[in-house]
């Protein structure tokens, strides 16, 4: 990669990214408002009693009595100044709601991501090097199993086994509430709560990485430059690391880029089953309650993440494979 080209490349990509994000914001706005029902009718439905005046008061308070284009303009103006609006339903700024929930989600998805990548690539490499042996068969079958099993079922089975039968791990939540833990004890407590959901979320991606790594490594291992490396006497470990794995990693990076983009929004199911206080549930509940500003705020954060990770993926290609140029 030519370092001189980097600033220009970045600037160009960032401008494009901003335009994409803005277009997404506008699309989201219309999509969300196209769903039947509005926050006022939801609240009326949940309260078990309402009258016209009550609905009118709520709609005025939520700004829903304004024409749609005015609402859009107010929202876009807000987003441009990084003001994501206010959730009238929960009486809190959207950015506070999101920032409160973001760390939990990042912890969960980050742990799952790290677990999936490390174990996936390791297992894939191992299988490729021992192709045809029992180790390869075990890894392939495991990977296929986790690839094909629905997430929620894996989650439920893990809970049944570790929480109900063995009683080793808690079945829900992020920490022991009211225990007033601090320091190492708190870290251990959170880790105990984190294990099952992170495993549940990570197993599918682990399977994907293992299968991908194995397949591409087998493909690369047959190529001429690998034979050349072996012929000139490069030790086997170095051949695998420098020549095979490095070249086999490109598709893995592509996929990791996609997974990383979903770090924020991709864990609704696991967050629900394990009562993990993350952002996926915030979005899901906002959808059910028609809490428009919160939902749009989460969509905005998610789209920014996706765009950023795409950019990062492109840069990583160039680092891993110098033949790829940024442009």
């Amino acid at each position: 990669m030519d370092p001189a080209k980097l600033p220009g490349f970045l600037a160009q990509r960032l401008v494009k990214a901003a335009i994409v994000v803005l277009a997404i914001v506008v699309c989201n706005f219309f999509l969300i408002h196209a769903a039947p029902g509005d926050p006022a009718s939801v609240i009326a439905g949940q309260s078990g009693a309402a009258d016209e005046r009550f609905l009118q008061q709520l709609r005025t308070q939520f700004g829903l009595d304004q024409p749609l284009h005015v609402q859009l303009w107010i929202y876009v103006k807000g987003v441009l100044t990084l003001d994501l609006g206010f959730s009238h339903r929960q009486q809190m700024p959207v950015s506070t709601l999101i920032m409160d929930r973001l760390p939990a989600t990042l912890l969960l998805t980050g742990a799952a991501f790290a677990f999936a990548i490390t174990l996936g690539i390791t297992l894939g490499t191992l299988a490729a090097r021992r192709v045809g042996t029992w180790a390869d068969s075990v890894i392939t079958v495991l990977a296929l199993t986790f690839y094909a099993t629905p997430l929620f079922w894996v989650g439920l089975m893990l809970v049944l086994f570790f929480s109900v039968w063995l009683e080793w791990l808690p079945s829900f939540g992020m920490m022991s509430v009211g225990a007033n833990l601090a320091g190492l004890a708190l870290v251990l407590d959170v880790a105990k709560h984190l294990l099952l959901p992170a495993l549940t979320l990570g197993l599918f991606y682990m399977a994907v990485y293992a299968r991908l790594t194995r397949a591409t490594m087998l493909e690369v291992a047959d190529q001429d430059f690998v034979k050349t490396a072996r012929a000139k006497g490069v030790p086997e470990g170095q051949v695998v690391r420098r020549h095979v794995l490095r070249n086999a990693l490109l598709p893995v990076i592509t996929f990791a880029g996609i997974q990383a983009g979903q770090l924020i929004g991709g864990s609704i199911l696991v967050e629900t089953v394990f009562a993990w206080p993350g952002i996926g549930r915030l979005a899901f509940e906002a959808l059910l309650a028609r809490d428009y500003p919160v939902l749009m705020g989460v969509f905005f954060a998610t789209s920014v993440m996706v765009v950023l990770f795409n950019l990062l993926t492109d840069l990583l290609y160039a680092v891993v494979d110098p033949r790829v140029e940024v442009a």
């Binding site: 439920l156 809970v159 929480s163 109900v164 009683e167 808690p170 079945s171 829900f172 939540g173 509430v177 009211g178 629900t272 089953v273 394990f274 009562a275 206080p277 549930r281 509940e285």
Partner: peptide, 22 residues
């Protein structure tokens, strides 16, 4: 001394929470 309300969105998880004494 206190009452703690846990938010548990999934009905099966709620049942488990009760069964396991959480």
């Amino acid at each position: 001394d206190a009452i703690i309300y846990r938010i548990v969105p999934d009905s099966q998880s709620r049942r488990l929470a009760l069964e396991t004494g959480q």
